[in-house]
């Protein structure tokens, strides 16, 4: 079996709201595959369908060769998941959390004890094993959840926003574990993230998701090629509307930024910049500032959607609205 996950036309609705609008993708065995997209794009919903927690409204999804709707038990046996929100027993110790998980998955005795020891050492929590989880920092809790998800040796591991809300050092630390897991255990890892650097650092392939659709898919390099090779930002002195984009055939894309700068996608910035000055002079526009850089995944997202990935929207703001409505009712 070549693919760890095969999804065809998957649809998931909540009442009138369609969270996932017919997505199709495949995850190869042994790769790290990332869903990248802003909050509310439908990433978590997709993960919940793939992990048998939600029933889809349409389409098919196979995980580890089994249909998530028809054979949920077979799927559950083969997957591990670290949820976006913590799902630990806060009153219990790290060891007890691991122990209960192991028992539920059918392990016991000395074998279980050894596995727990090995995994808690792997995430460097063995010395804190008898401390209740409520005294753990966010990073420690995440590490414990990662260790717990590995306990039953899943074929496919789902990580839903594994480093959300963690400080940069802790994030880098978690990334190391994820890489080590892939190397040592030859595991397929499916992760969702709204951090571009995370997708870029970890993933073999990335699917960019927005408003319930996959809008692009490929390696980080392949995705960046969608933009062109380089991105140039220009600040000009009061350009007229028509000349803002300095139309020329070497400019592959153009967008006026909210701060007034103009963003140009070009093949090679080094060659394009002198040409731009010539063009500007012809049209009687003064260029005040030029910056350029290699495209990032954020540029890709901007190129595809016209928005930045960091824009907050969807889930988060909906959640806030609901909260506000609740407060008012009281």
């Amino acid at each position: 079996m070549e693919y760890a996950v095969e999804v065809e036309n998957l649809v998931k609705k909540y009442g009138d709201f369609t969270a996932v609008r017919g997505i199709s993708f495949r995850v190869r065995r042994g790769e790290i595959f990332a869903f990248l997209g802003p909050n509310g794009a439908g990433k978590t919903t997709t993960v919940h369908v793939l992990t048998t927690l939600l029933k889809p409204n349409g389409g098919t999804a196979f995980v580890a060769g089994h249909d998530v709707v028809r054979e949920p038990m077979e799927v559950r046996r083969r997957i591990g998941i670290v949820f976006q929100d913590p799902s630990l027993d806060r009153e219990l110790t790290a060891y007890e959390n691991m122990y209960i998980h192991g028992r539920i998955y059918g392990y016991s005795g000395e074998g279980l004890r050894k596995k727990i020891e090995r995994l808690l050492k792997f995430v460097e929590l063995w010395e804190f094993k008898d401390r209740p989880v409520k005294f753990f920092s966010g990073g420690m809790q995440r590490r414990l959840e990662i260790a717990r998800s590995l306990l039953h040796e899943p074929e496919i591991l789902f990580l839903d926003e594994p480093t959300i809300g963690l400080d940069p050092q802790t994030r880098a630390h978690i990334w190391e574990y994820i890489r080590a897991m892939k190397e040592e255990q030859d595991m397929t890892i499916f992760l969702t993230t709204h951090y571009m650097d995370e997708a870029e650092q970890l993933a073999d392939r990335i699917a960019i998701m927005d408003y319930g659709r996959i809008i692009a898919e490929g390696t980080a390099d392949e995705l960046k090629k969608l933009v062109g090779n380089d991105v140039i930002y220009l600040r000009m002195e009061e350009p007229e509307e028509g000349v803002k984009c300095l139309n020329a055939d070497f400019i592959r894309g153009c967008k006026v930024m909210p701060d007034g700068r103009v963003r140009l996608d070009v093949q090679n910035a080094g060659e394009a910049v002198p040409k731009l000055f010539e063009l500007a002079q012809e049209k009687g526009v003064r260029i005040l500032e030029v910056t350029y850089h290699r495209p990032t995944l954020n540029d890709v997202f901007l190129h595809l959607t016209g928005r930045e990935i960091r824009d907050e929207g969807g889930e988060q703001s909906t959640a806030r609205m609901i909260m506000r409505a609740r407060m008012r009712r009281r």
Partner: peptide, 18 residues
């Protein structure tokens, strides 16, 4: 609310028994 239910729901275990 604190997520332990999700742990049970994704486990290959009998929900009734749990």
């Amino acid at each position: 609310q604190f997520g332990f239910i999700k742990e049970i729901l994704v486990a290959p275990a009998s929900r009734g028994e749990a």
